[in-house]
Design a protein around this nucleic acid. Structure first.
Length: 220
DNA sequence: TGGTAGATATACT
DNA sequence: GTATATCTACCAA
């Protein structure tokens, strides 16, 4: 992936990212995922975008040049990551929603609390072994934006990393992406613009996160 | 199998 | 104070 490609319209860029590989290296080791699901966010024109109401300390990376990582913390608990797209000053971005772990599976399992000895039985830490375990825990390692950040070891320290620099701890690798026709649908969990089909995924890929429509929280 | 409580940073009203 | 680009454990049936 070249930076000039990422500078294009976000609805063009988002499907291009499907099938490409994101590799993260920390002191713990290296994990790489093949991106299987993304969502497009079109800055000031998109009421669902963090950049819709202008620049804040949190979303500043989106306003910079394309190819930099925008990491944010949400629900008091989870990190999610975007690839900033569009030219400098255009705060569009692509949310990485899911991927298949293709390198460093052992480390990804460790980070996600999956006990190797219990693979296949669905044993997960912390807490007791689930009574009805998932049939295939590896499928879920990076299935969903927050899980993907855990699997790759991404946190707020990675905000602003250049994904296209050879010496970066997180890199978007060169190589062919998904060759077919992506599936599209509404973005997950958004109250705004629920009818915009700006979510793209690789058809029939088991690592794509299940669709959940926005659920307003009831008052206590 | 499906619904929900709870974790609580950040931005907005 | 309220909402949010979420996930997990727990519980009822």
């Amino acid at each position: 992936m070249r930076r000039t490609q990422l500078a294009g319209p976000v609805l063009d860029v988002a499907p291009l990212l499907l099938g490409t590989v994101l590799r993260s290296t920390t002191a713990e080791g290296t994990v790489a995922v093949r991106i299987t699901e993304v969502e497009a966010y079109d800055g000031p024109n998109d009421p669902g975008s963090h950049a819709y109401r202008g620049e804040t300390p949190r979303n500043a990376v989106m306003f910079g040049p394309p190819g930099f990582l925008y990491v944010y913390f949400t629900y008091g608990m989870h990190f999610c990551m975007n690839i900033g797209t569009g030219p400098t000053g255009t705060p569009s971005a692509v949310l990485l929603r899911a991927g298949e772990v293709i390198e460093g599976v052992e480390l990804a399992r460790h980070r996600r609390g999956v006990v190797p000895a219990l693979i296949g039985t669905g044993g997960v830490l912390p807490g007791p072994v689930r009574k009805r375990p998932a049939a295939n825990p590896d499928r879920d390692l990076a299935r969903g934006p927050a899980r993907m950040c855990v699997a790759l070891g991404i946190d707020r320290e990675h905000n602003g990393v250049d994904l296209l620099a050879k010496d970066s701890p997180v890199r978007l690798l060169d190589g062919p992406g998904f060759d077919g026709t992506p599936s599209t649908g509404p973005r997950v969990g958004l109250r705004e613009a629920p009818d915009w089909c700006w979510r793209f995924w690789i058809p029939n890929d088991p690592t794509v996160s299940p669709y959940r429509p926005h659920v307003p929280k009831r008052r206590a």
